[in-house]
């Protein structure tokens, strides 16, 4: 019975027919998707924190407004993704619990500190840039709610990267201190952004299965190479330098060669020993705890209203 359903399922995936919430799916597919989607959602939520840091210090009214809008979008993206994950049989409360207990992961890039205003630019250009590389192909993911969430996210994402690059561009044309701030932010955010694409393909055992299920459309190394190629050109417009002495165009490969990644740092951060892991999680746990009385009161009131006989 199961192998016939499996075949039907895989046929659909192979033909790019979307899998929807009530369709039969292998348990492993469901579990993998829940983990992937919820971790993506957690990344959006935790990702709000490093940028929210600078909202109250944004140096102009226009920057203030656009930064709030960007961070708000990230909240919205988290929400779309939690919503997609809930169609697979897990609740928001369970997912939040997994995040807070440390059981679920989020993108390790958000465990780095935002130390200057220029970090807002670097995050928009590099971190959002890397995220877009990953997200656009997922608009064709096999699971319907996930793909649709990704389409919505990608539409909103376009201004995020442009905003970041513009911040850096203005700094790069500014005072000596501003130019220094710009280069310093790029120096700190470059390698963590490159690491966002995950381990090398030969160190990623799940890639093959995920590609077959079409919940991953390109490999880590493919996306990473594309990202580096694009940024190596874009950085020239800023008159800045990517902090990789081994970065150079390879005419034969028609790609940029680049230096080796510090995998020790990567695994340290993934395993909870990055600069901000504890603070990020603590902030989320705190917000949730502080909000408990609010959530409780809202439910109590809703119940009272029913008793009062009023309609919502």
């Amino acid at each position: 019975m199961d192998s016939a359903s499996e075949k039907l399922f895989q046929d659909k995936v192979d033909q790019d027919i979307r899998i929807e919430p009530k369709d039969w799916m292998p348990e492993a597919y469901r579990k993998t998707l829940i983990r992937q989607i919820s971790q993506h959602a957690h990344s959006e939520i935790v990702g709000m924190l490093p940028e929210a840091n600078w909202i109250t210090r944004a140096p102009s009214l226009r920057r203030k407004a656009t930064l709030i809008a960007k961070v708000q979008d990230e909240a919205g993206h988290g929400l779309y993704l939690y919503s997609a994950a809930e169609t697979l049989g897990i609740t928001r409360e369970e997912m939040i619990g997994q995040l807070h207990s440390g059981k679920a992961k989020y993108s390790s890039i958000f465990n780095y500190p935002t130390l200057t205003w220029a970090d807002m630019g670097a995050i928009g250009w590099l971190v959002d840039g890397a995220a877009i590389m990953n997200q656009v192909p997922l608009c064709r993911a096999s699971y319907g709610p996930y793909a649709r969430a990704m389409v919505r996210i990608c539409k909103e994402e376009s201004f995020h990267q442009r905003q970041g690059f513009e911040i850096l561009l203005v700094l790069s044309r500014g005072s000596e201190a501003q130019r220094r701030m710009c280069q310093d932010a790029i120096d700190r955010w470059w390698w963590p952004s490159v690491m966002m694409f995950g381990p090398n393909d030969d160190a990623s055992p799940h890639t093959a299965q995920s590609m077959q299920w079409k919940i991953k459309r390109f490999t880590n190394d493919e996306l990473r190479q594309k990202f580096i190629d694009v940024c190596a050109e874009q950085v020239k417009l800023l008159g800045m330098r990517i902090p990789d002495p081994d970065l150079r165009w390879n005419e034969e490969r028609q790609h940029y060669d680049f230096g080796s990644i510090n995998w020790e740092e990567f695994w340290n951060v993934v395993n909870g020993n990055g600069p901000c892991n504890r603070q990020r999680l603590a902030a989320r746990v705190q917000a949730h705890a502080d909000g408990a009385w609010v959530r409780e009161a809202a439910v109590a009131h809703a119940e009272k209203k029913i008793q009062y006989g009023k309609t919502a």
Binding site: V71, A75, L79, A283, Q286, G291, V294, R295
Partner: peptide, 15 residues
């Protein structure tokens, strides 16, 4: 109000 960004009691209210 913007100081609340990222710290609201539930995601929907943050937005």
């Amino acid at each position: 109000n913007s100081e609340w960004t990222g710290h609201g009691p539930i995601l929907e209210q943050d937005i």
